[in-house]
Computed example of a mutant assay.
Amino acid sequence: MTPKHFVPFQQLRQQPTIAVDSTGLGAVLTLAHWRGATTPELLRDDTSAGSVLRALREPTTSGLEAAAVTANHFDIDGFVGVWALLNPALALRHEPLLRQVATLGDFREINWANPLADHALQLVCWLNAEEKNRFYEPFGAPARRRREDEASAEKFAWFLPRFAAVLENPAVGQAAWEPEYGRVKQAAAIMQSPATTIRRYPEIGLTVVRTPEPVPYYALFGPTTGTDMVLSLYDGQRYELEYKYTTWIDLESRPTLPRLPLQALANCLNELEMGARRWTFDGITDTGPLLRLSGKGLTKAQRYADPDQRPIYSSAIPPAQLEEEVVAFFRSHYAGVEPRRYWSWADIRAVGEVEQHRISSSAGRKLG
């Protein structure tokens, strides 16, 4: 295979270039799980890094001969994909581990029974810590008046030559990964204890987690694998509902239901809410839309950060009633909608518009 090197995204059209975890006109090969990406059908995977690893096992793939590789942002999945193209032999040797790293980085899902789980968590925590300490947090470029596609090139330049050493010997980066790793492991123990209860509603793709305090995503989302929404119920009647990233991308491994606008659910909950705070929500095209009681507006970087790193406010609604309302809403609105793969954003909006029309018609009949 042609030896490869990383180029900043702005240089995409200056030479034949492979785009990883990104879309861009002019790429000779796209390896991304984004909706509508032109990833070859045989290379589609849940993660962009997974598509890269598939491509490495199909060396005759058209475009794979290009020497330049790029991405328009830095995150763990995209970085692993770029690094694998630059280090194909080592990547294939560690393929199961790299797949776990990419999945944990993007979906925050980890299977603790897997013997590689600890190693994957250490690598992810090392990437997180070094990124924040040396550069800026995910989605933090705009606050620094920088474009992510430009600023992220500095991250790639630092991480690409250093990742292999930590991959093969995590102790090399232990000083960086240990604090977050310890926090996640402690939270995971609580999630696996009698203090936590988990209920799944597979017909609507929802997992309900009731646990005393907010925990890091890597602990919270582990038990939610296979579902696409998480309702978190914390002591003190503090709640959050979140659509996972699994419904922002084209998930290859299983069909999913489309995201629904959360306006109607927020309206329902606001009718029940006795306090001064109101239920607010993010749009369906956000990477991880949240429904939560309002406070000071959260930035994208704060919303992406762990639940235990942001304020979550007390509601007047008892937890059993909140769960009942959320489950009833999605059961009603997903009735007649069949899960499938490869929803386009136009398809998703169309489902939402149909549901909005149905709600408006129902409200009109009640008023009449």
Score class of each variant (00 low, 15 high):
Thr285Glu: 11
Arg303Ile: 03
Ala335Ile: 02
Gln263Leu: 13
Lys300Met: 07
Val326Leu: 06
Asp286Glu: 15
Ile348Pro: 00
Lys300Ser: 13
Val354Asp: 09
Gly295Cys: 12
Ser362Arg: 12
Phe281Lys: 03
Tyr243Leu: 04
Arg310Ile: 15
Asp250Leu: 00
Val337Thr: 04
Gly364Met: 02
Lys296Met: 09
Gln356Ile: 06
Lys244Ser: 12
Glu271Arg: 14
Pro311Ser: 11
Arg358Gly: 07
Arg358Glu: 07
Ser361Val: 12
Ala305Gln: 02
Pro318Glu: 11
Val351Asp: 02
Pro318Asp: 13
Phe330Tyr: 01
Gln263Asp: 13
Tyr243Arg: 04
Arg254Met: 06
Ser360Tyr: 03
Thr287Asp: 14
Val337Gly: 00
Gln237Val: 06
Ser362Ala: 15
Arg365Pro: 04
Thr287Cys: 08
Pro258Lys: 04
Leu298Val: 00
Ala301Cys: 05
Ser294Ile: 02
Lys300Trp: 04
Arg331Met: 06
Ala328His: 10
Glu353Val: 04
Thr246Ala: 09
Ala346Pro: 00
Gly275Pro: 00
Glu325Ile: 03
Pro258Asp: 05
Asp286Tyr: 15
Ser315Tyr: 13
Glu338Met: 12
Tyr239Gly: 03
Ser362His: 08
Gln263Ala: 14
Asp286Leu: 15
Lys244Leu: 11
Ala328Met: 08
Gly295Phe: 08
Phe281Met: 06
Tyr243Trp: 03
Val354Glu: 14
Trp343Leu: 06
Pro255His: 11
Tyr313Phe: 10
Gln309Trp: 00
Leu260Asp: 01
Trp343Cys: 09
Pro319Arg: 02
Ser315Ile: 09
Val326Gly: 01
Ser362Asp: 01
Glu353Trp: 12
Glu242Ala: 15
Tyr304Met: 07
Val327Glu: 05
Arg331Asn: 06
Arg259Met: 02
Asp282Trp: 13
Thr287Lys: 11
Thr246Asn: 03
Glu271Val: 10
Asn270Trp: 08
Asp347Met: 00
Leu265Ser: 06
Pro261Gln: 10
Glu252Asn: 05
Ala335Asp: 12
Glu338Ser: 14
Ile317Val: 11
Ser360Thr: 14
Leu269Glu: 07
Tyr243Ser: 05
Thr287Pro: 02
Ala316Cys: 11
Gln321Thr: 05
Tyr245Gly: 00
Val354Cys: 06
Leu241Gly: 09
Asn270Glu: 02
Arg277Lys: 13
Leu290Ile: 02
Leu262Gly: 02
Leu251Asp: 01
Met274Val: 07
Ile249Phe: 05
